[in-house]
Simulated scan of single mutants.
Amino acid sequence: MTKLTLFDLDHTLLPLDSDYEWGQFMSRIGAVDPVEFKRRNAEFYEQYQAGTLDPVAYLEFAFGTLAQFPRAQLDAWHRQFMDEVIRPALKPSALDLVRRHRDAGDLVAIVTATNRFVTAPIAAEFGVEHLIAAEPEVDDAGNITGAFRGTPPYGAGKVVNLNKWLAARGQSLDGFDRSTFYSDSQNDIPLLQAVTHPVATNPNALLDAHAKARGWPILNLFND
């Protein structure tokens, strides 16, 4: 296996932000205070888009919310979330892109700043076995405690987490003949610069300008 293909998730493979939409879903079903939670959720989302997010503060907020509920209840809500929000948003163009890389025999992984609870079922929907995501601490019963483990996979933290994952497999980034990363956001420039083939995918304005200045390919998956 000589090719590594990495995907960001939100606004790259999905035409939405799964973390933000999960928060909106929790507000909609009445699991959290709709006014205060929506306010804080919107604040963090704006910070992420602007590249000013404090990932530790956000994860403490996200995991603290999840820790209020038993895992069985969270899992039931997530199944509803998949049916109502995620599956209707899946685009054939994104599914086909992932499938082509899998069929070519690439080692494929999703690398996302969004936490594993929210994203693991979404990665499975894309047929992606390997997921590098923010890791919630869980107790012996599988309940989320509110704490998080490791380095947040945000910005340069994505490179840290990728290298750790590869090392655990006895591999390294420079051991691949070709490494590709698809992302929409300037927040992912550290990992885009670390691979041999960066692809600005549905890029926001900042990444679009950065990619054009460096001659990176630009892919728009969601154009009708």
Rank of each mutant, 00 (worst) to 15 (best):
R178K: 15
A124W: 06
G127N: 06
L74M: 08
A104R: 03
L173T: 04
R178G: 10
T112A: 03
D33E: 11
D174K: 12
L6Y: 03
A134M: 00
N161T: 08
P217G: 05
D224L: 12
L97G: 01
D208I: 08
P70L: 02
V195F: 02
G215I: 09
P55E: 09
P203K: 07
A31T: 01
F44T: 12
P121K: 02
W216A: 04
D83A: 15
S18P: 05
F25T: 00
S183E: 01
G64C: 08
T52R: 13
V35R: 13
L59E: 12
L219R: 12
H101C: 10
R214T: 02
R39T: 12
R100I: 03
N202S: 08
H197A: 10
A76Y: 09
Y45I: 04
H130Q: 12
A124T: 12
T180G: 04
N143D: 13
G215V: 11
N41T: 12
L162T: 05
T196E: 06
P15Q: 08
A133H: 03
R178H: 15
E46P: 11
R102S: 11
D106L: 02
Q73I: 03
D174Q: 12
R71Q: 15
A94Y: 10
V199A: 07
R40K: 15
D188S: 00
L131Q: 01
Q24N: 15
V160Y: 09
V32L: 14
L166G: 04
P198Y: 06
G142S: 06
A211H: 05
D174N: 14
N115H: 13
I189Q: 10
M26R: 15
D17Y: 14
A67F: 01
W216R: 03
Q186E: 14
L14G: 05
K212G: 10
L97D: 04
E135S: 08
D177T: 13
L162D: 03
